[in-house]
Design a binder for these strands. Structure first.
Lengths: 247, 247
DNA sequence: GGTGGCATGTATCGACGATACCGCAAGGCT
DNA sequence: AGCCTTGCGGTATCGTCGATACATGCCACC
């Protein structure tokens, strides 16, 4: 959200109601655009149609969103935020791998539930900055971090995130591109297990959770390593001893 | 391709040259559209711009392709056919799994080499009927059939084809959506092995959870730690990054 | 040498995204 | 209190888009 405009600062007395009204019409325009998008398809979302559907004048859209792309971005963010808000995220999952599956299912479910919105967001490359979008990314990164902390992660955290995105995107777009009578639910489960196999280890690399367990595991697996110089390895071992003893 | 038009039948004498000329201008228009698409982006492909780029009148496009969508479909088919023709397919591969990988690489390579064309073809669901498209599908189905004949296939042939498509689509679109400095080639190889694991019976090489996994775990679990000084933690993190990336 | 049919070329239509311009209502200043 | 500045909402309009009607002219055929 941008900082308060000078006009709002000057008229601080009723800026609340004015800003509230503005936000209200903004929301009405967005919902009208979503309605058109899901009811009549992407091409039906024109500035004029959205304006009459929302009961506002055509230039109001440009004043509210600056651009048609701005409107579409606002629509994408609104839809994604609404979906995220409707779903609750387990803050402390027992099985991080199951949690990963749940997160993947969530992403795919969003795509299948809002096909027009999903293709609008993910069909063409480019935009990646959005409040709701980064919020979803934060949730995903949290899941990945828990996996890593448990020693489950097979690849880099960044690569894991990209792999999850790529499989989910391929799953949703391919599913949507199939005629309804060829949509096999096994596609989704197979892709999900493929994602899990690519991202996680079958057995965690650390036996005990927490830094001490990870330090012990790393200390045990280290001798074969040559990436570090011998001096570095020596110092690293010392620290690992301290970390392992700390648990 | 439709059967010969009555006009062509009637003027059979020079229908060859006439049809050839027509096909020539058709090809010129398609190439002009491809040039605009890859040089100035999707939105630059307007009927007028294509017409002036190809040196034809605006209505000629509608006479040749009937519609702007017709032009775009012709463009997609042309580009895909050109790519298919440039690549030769091993008719009798020795290792069908390696052949599957090669086919997947081919599909992904097409997407990475022709990003605008690829997003045009696969971004939005719908069109699936095209000569070159079905030709590519035939090649893919041949590969899958050889896998099935060798007993390699783990799932339905249809599901295998869909899985291959979905992973390739996710790989290409995700790759293209990343900024150039975040494009990790490991994404493609990881997705390819995930696809092979999902489609074939080939078990992934059981990777020992080496130091990289433990390093990742320790890196993710570290922030709560206070045993080390901040300077030590900083250096440790650096080493853990190197160890984690080494796997 | 007509004659009919079809491709070519010009002009134009409705809709789209986007914006300039005008009136007006609401504080601020003297 | 009255004037004035400031910014918002409403009307009209611009340039471009996809798509098409209409006139023109070319060419084979009789």
């Amino acid at each position: 959200m941008p900082p308060r405009s000078p006009a709002e600062d000057r008229a601080a007395a009723d800026s609340d109601t004015a800003a509230a009204g503005r936000e209200q019409t903004r929301q009405r325009v967005i919902e009208a655009a979503i309605g058109l998008l899901e009811r009549e398809g992407r091409d039906a979302v024109t500035t004029r149609a959205v304006a009459v559907a929302a009961g506002v004048q055509a230039p109001a859209i440009y004043r509210l969103f600056g651009d048609k792309n701005g409107l579409l971005e606002a629509v994408a963010e609104y839809g994604f935020a609404a979906f995220l808000a409707a779903k609750h995220v387990d803050p402390d999952p027992q099985d991080p791998v199951e949690d990963l599956k749940a997160g993947w299912d969530l992403a795919v479910e969003f795509g299948l539930a809002n096909p027009a919105l999903y293709t609008l967001m993910y069909s063409e490359p480019g935009n990646a900055t959005s409040a709701a979008f980064t919020a979803g990314m934060e949730i995903l990164m949290g899941r990945i971090r828990r996996l890593a902390a448990g020693g489950w992660l097979r690849v880099d955290e960044q690569l894991a995130a990209t792999l999850i995105h790529a499989t989910a995107r391929g799953a949703v777009l391919t599913w949507l591109s199939l005629p309804e009578d060829e949509r096999n639910p096994a596609l989704l489960t197979a892709l999900r297990t493929a994602m899990v196999t690519a991202v996680t280890n079958q057995q965690p690399a650390v036996r005990d959770a927490g830094p001490a367990g990870a330090a012990r595991a790393l200390r045990a697996a280290l001798p074969e390593q040559t990436t570090l110089s011998s001096a570095e390895q020596h110092l690293l071992r010392e620290w690992l001893d301290r970390l392992a003893a700390d648990g």
